[in-house]
Design a protein around this nucleic acid. Structure first.
Lengths: 140, 140
DNA sequence: AAATATTGTTTGTACATACAAATATAATTT
DNA sequence: AAATTATATTTGTATGTACAAACAATATTT
C-alpha cells in the first residue's frame, strides 16, 4: 500500500483497482454511523426507496451480479432489515421498520461521503472524474 | 449488472467499483494466455524484474496490503513460480526457472491489455483517465 | 396440450483482499 | 547490557464478489 510511485501507475487496471479499494475504505468509514458497510447501506437505500423491488432490478442499480445481490439480501434479512416475498418466479424485497428508521442516517452518511471526497479532490475534478469513469464503464 | 443507468452513477464510490470490476475481468481475460490471473501475473512481473525483492516493496509496487502479498507469494511458491529466502527479519523473493520462462508471455499479455482498453476508450482519453485516477488515489 | 426455451433467483464453491493479532528480528533508549 | 520500541512478515479469520450449475416459473413454439 502507501503512496509510492509504481511503474504500474500508468495501467488502468492498476489505478482503477487502487481507487476502488481506497473509495471502499472511505465509504465504509462514512457509512459506519449506520452500522453497515457500503454495499448494505446502498442496498437498503434502494429498497427503502422502492419497496417491493426485485433482485434483478437491484442488481442493475448496484451494478452487481444477481448472485451477489441474493447474498446481500440474505444477510440483511437475517439481520432483520429486509424481507423477501416470493411471487411466482420473482421475489419482492421489502424494508422492515428497522430499515425505514435507518433511512435518514443512511442518506446523511451518503452526503458525508460525497462531501468528503469532493472536498479533497475539488468539486469540479471529482465530478468530472466520476463522469469519466462512468463513461468508461459504459463503453468497456 | 448491465449497462442501465443508475441513480448512483454520480457517486465516485459506485463508479470506481464498477470500473474496477470490469477492468479486472478484462485484465484476467488478457492474462489468461499466461495461465495466471492478473494479480499473480503482476507479482511475477515484479519479481522477475527485481529478483530478491522483499514483500514490503512488492506491497508498495502493487498497492496491496502486506498480508495480501504474503498470500499471493504463498500461492506462487506452491505452484513453483517463486521461492522465499528468509534473511533476518526480512524475506527475499526469487523467481524460479518456470517464472523466468513465462516472462515474455506476461509482457505480451500486459501489452495486449493496454491495447485493448486504449483502443476502446481512445488513446488520449484512456491516458488522461488513468492519470486522473492515479492522481485521485494519491490525494485521497 | 406437450415440448422447448427463456427468465428470475438461489446455491455451491472459489477467489482476492483486508484487518487485527502474533511472531520474529533489529534498532534505540536507558 | 536490558528494556523498550519499531519494523517486516505471517497467520487466523472475515468480507465482498463472481461463476457455473441448479431450480422454478413463465412464455413460446410446435
Amino acid at each position: 500500500m502507501g503512496k509510492e510511485k509504481t511503474k504500474y501507475c500508468t495501467c488502468l487496471y492498476y489505478s482503477a483497482n487502487a481507487l476502488s479499494r481506497i473509495m471502499t475504505k472511505i465509504s465504509d468509514e462514512e457509512f459506519a454511523i449506520t452500522g453497515l458497510s457500503s454495499s448494505y447501506a446502498f442496498l437498503l437505500m434502494i429498497v427503502n426507496e422502492n419497496p417491493g423491488v426485485q433482485p434483478t432490478e437491484i442488481s442493475h442499480q448496484m451494478q452487481l451480479t444477481p448472485s451477489t445481490v441474493t447474498r446481500l439480501i440474505e444477510k440483511m434479512e437475517y439481520r432483520n432489515y429486509l424481507e423477501r416475498k416470493t411471487v411466482g418466479r420473482t421475489t419482492e424485497v421489502y424494508p422492515t421498520k428497522q430499515a425505514k428508521e435507518l433511512h435518514p442516517k443512511i442518506q446523511k452518511a451518503w452526503a458525508n461521503l460525497y462531501n468528503r471526497y469532493s472536498t479533497v479532490l475539488g468539486k469540479e475534478f471529482s465530478k468530472q472524474l466520476t463522469a469519466d469513469i462512468y463513461k468508461a464503464t459504459q463503453v468497456l
